[in-house]
Design a protein around this nucleic acid. Structure first.
Length: 322
DNA sequence: TGAATTCTAACCCTTACGTCA
DNA sequence: GCTGACGTAAGGGTTAGAATT
């Protein structure tokens, strides 16, 4: 059926994606326009994606574990994803699309296209089949990809063409979430159903998040290793100090124990030796004097992240963002 | 004005399918 | 040809915020 959304799409088709995404021919009759307009302002006019990579209601990993020294890096993880490594400009892809908007290589039903690597064996039959398939019945969502017409049970799986994937990827770099209008416009441009675009973005976000989780996991692993090492070292020091306490007569012949000091500016922990000239009084009374005199370098509880010098390699992700 | 209800969109988890080795 | 691993499109359920009543 011809919905108002389709009308929107027709109006927007004449523009390139970047423009059409921002275009708000506001003849929509549903009740969420205010929201969308606000979002459109945010996303399209200001060209500023939402601040959070995943504007989710739920807590993200980084929300739960806010590494203070990593925030900027962590936020940048989701930038610059280029999975397909063949970034074609949107304009170029758009240019491939002819006026009818149906002759471009469309999403591919794998059982039809055969090879995964090269879906664009452009028969007219194939193209027609793909077009009819990917367009489907433009009823919203309900049908699903396998829910069209005949089979409820058999859900055929389509494969997006390379061009579609590239455009989606490029768009994802810009906006990792789409508002409904953007979704519509992009779907129209790619000759897909909005639901398919939505699903693609959802899955794409999931993949990005998975990568992020892997990176975070690796980081925590290294944190754990460092902490274990630090713990081992401190245990050893404690043993030394206990031995010292039990036999003070030996103290004068011992090397001074190492002490953790913290740089007040960067709060990084440094292991320093107090030097051979340090007196026993200094060593033993250090914690007490530190608590009284803030200028005294004092042994501190170990900052688990401070001693880390791990460079977290950002994973690919959506593009730059302030 | 505040509470209850409805709508919507995003997310997560899972499934099903296609491809490849 | 069969099989298991892997990638990914899609289904279904849940949730939170906005809009409406």
């Amino acid at each position: 059926m011809a919905t108002t959304d389709e009308k929107d799409n027709n109006e927007q088709m004449s523009l390139g994606l970047s423009l059409s995404l921002g275009l708000y021919a506001d003849n929509n009759n549903n009740n969420k326009n205010k929201n969308e307009q606000q979002q459109a302002l945010k996303l399209n006019l200001i060209q500023k994606p939402p601040p959070q990579p995943f504007p989710n209601h739920r807590l993200s990993f980084n929300t739960l574990f806010p590494f203070h020294d990593l925030s900027s890096e962590t936020r940048s993880f989701l930038r610059g994803i280029d999975v397909n490594s063949a970034p074609t400009s949107t304009a170029a892809v758009t240019a491939c699309e002819d006026e009818n908007g149906v002759s471009s290589p469309n999403s591919t039903v794998s059982s039809i296209s055969g090879k995964r690597s090269e879906p664009n064996g452009n028969d007219e039959n194939e193209a027609a089949e793909r077009a009819s398939y990917s367009r489907g019945s433009d009823e919203e969502d309900g049908g699903g990809i396998g829910g069209d017409a005949d089979g409820e049970s058999s859900r055929k799986k389509l494969r997006l063409s390379k061009e579609q994937a590239v455009v989606l990827e490029e768009t994802f770099k810009e906006f990792n979430t789409l508002n409904p209008k953007q979704k519509q416009a992009l779907a129209k441009q790619l000759n897909l159903r909005p639901r398919q675009v939505e699903v693609w973005f959802q899955n794409r976000r999931a993949r990005t998040k998975l990568k992020q989780t892997e990176v975070d996991c690796e980081y925590l692993k290294r944190c754990c290793e460092n902490l274990t090492e630090e713990n081992r070292r401190l245990q050893k020091e404690v043993q030394e100090l206990r031995a010292l306490k039990l036999s003070p007569q030996l103290y004068m012949h011992m090397n001074p124990p190492t002490t953790l000091t913290m740089c007040p500016s960067c709060e990084r922990v440094a292991v320093s030796s107090t030097g051979s000239s340090s007196s026993s009084a200094t060593m033993q009374s250090a914690p007490a004097s530190a608590s009284q005199n803030p200028n005294v370098q004092r042994p501190i509880p170990v900052n688990p992240w401070g001693a880390m010098s791990i460079q977290r390699r950002p994973i690919d992700g959506p593009t730059t963002r302030p």
